[in-house]
């Protein structure tokens, strides 16, 4: 049986995809091209004089130790955020999956943080951990920990990871719960009859069966940590102390919007663009094929 749909007219399919193409062109391709062009320019802030400098902006980044440090930092930050938020979400999902009464209520509560804007999430955590006024600082002080993320680089990094991961738990939770729901009950019941306990069932049945979701979430979380955490960093540390929480996307903002170095900032965003393209290619070509049920 033939599944292909045949159109009689030759322009209808083009007409149908046109809105999507136009949106992509106007909101994605065009700005990306602008950034690409800008990254080859050396320009003053007002755009009064500009000079085409080829790859100067990129060479400068390559020579800048602060940029290279930021790269390593971003990698660490992304994996920490992805690991922490996915780990916690998986744990919650496994628990929520077993709840019979009031499951809907639990789930709704767990999903709420997703609705919080990044900058607000950052501010909430900042209030909790404010070195002078924060309630958590006060408790930590009682157990002998001196909390001052304005000065202590690792505490600052810990705090932004915590805030960024917290916000993403809901999203991951949702996917994990859905994935667990799609596992046939009969499989789990059969294992239970054979005497496998909940932990054993999770390890040998549930976890392998949700692995496609896990890999999907890993990529999504890394992209989230790369780009969407800007608001959190901006609110909590503004990249400091030192440059200890200045991740790549924050540096793009800082150089472009604060420092008004448009060429250098554009060059950085072009590099980020290639990272995302790379990650997406990995996700589609490699991971989705490798993960077997």
């Amino acid at each position: 049986m033939q599944k292909r749909v045949h159109y009689n007219s030759s322009y209808l399919p083009y007409l149908l995809v046109a809105p999507q193409i136009i949106i992509t062109l106007v909101f994605f391709i065009w700005p990306a091209m602008q950034a690409l062009y800008q990254s080859f320019l050396l320009e003053d802030a007002f755009g009064l004089s500009s000079e085409f400098v080829w790859f100067d902006n990129f060479v400068e980044l390559y020579d800048n130790p602060r940029y290279l440090d930021s790269f390593v930092r971003t990698a660490f930050f992304s994996f920490a955020v992805a690991g922490l938020s996915m780990g916690v979400a998986l744990f919650f999902a496994a628990l929520a999956d077993r709840v019979v009464k009031g499951a809907q209520g639990y789930r709704t509560l767990l999903i709420i943080p997703y609705a919080v804007a990044p900058v607000l999430a950052g501010t909430l955590w900042l209030f909790l951990f404010n070195p002078t006024l924060g309630i958590m600082t006060y408790f930590l002080d009682m157990v002998g920990i001196n909390w001052n993320h304005k000065l202590d680089s690792s505490q600052a990094m810990g705090l932004v990871i915590l805030a960024a991961a917290w916000k993403q738990i809901s999203y991951n939770f949702l996917f994990f719960v859905a994935a667990m729901h799609s596992i046939p009950k009969s499989l789990i019941e059969a294992a239970a009859i054979d005497g496998a306990g909940p932990a054993h069932r999770f390890r040998t049945i549930i976890f392998p069966l949700i692995s496609p979701t896990t890999f999907f979430l890993l990529v999504v979380n890394i992209i989230y940590a790369f780009f969407d955490t800007f608001g959190i960093i901006h609110a909590v540390t503004a990249g400091g102390p030192g440059n200890s929480t200045e991740i790549l996307v924050y540096k793009v903002f800082n150089d472009g919007f604060v420092g008004l170095d448009l060429g250098g900032s554009a060059a950085q965003s072009v590099i980020l663009m290639f990272i995302v393209i790379g990650l997406t290619v990995v996700q589609f070509k490699y991971i989705e094929r490798k993960v077997e049920y």
Binding site: L151, D152, S153, G239, G240, P241, G242, N243, N254, D255, V258, G259, L260, D261
Partner: peptide, 21 residues
């Protein structure tokens, strides 16, 4: 020129003095 960024660098370096690195 670029003093907004330079101040940023100064701030970062000063923080490294304060935290002893």
């Amino acid at each position: 020129g670029n003093f907004v960024q330079i101040r940023d660098i100064i701030n970062a370096e000063m923080e490294m003095i304060w935290n002893g690195s």
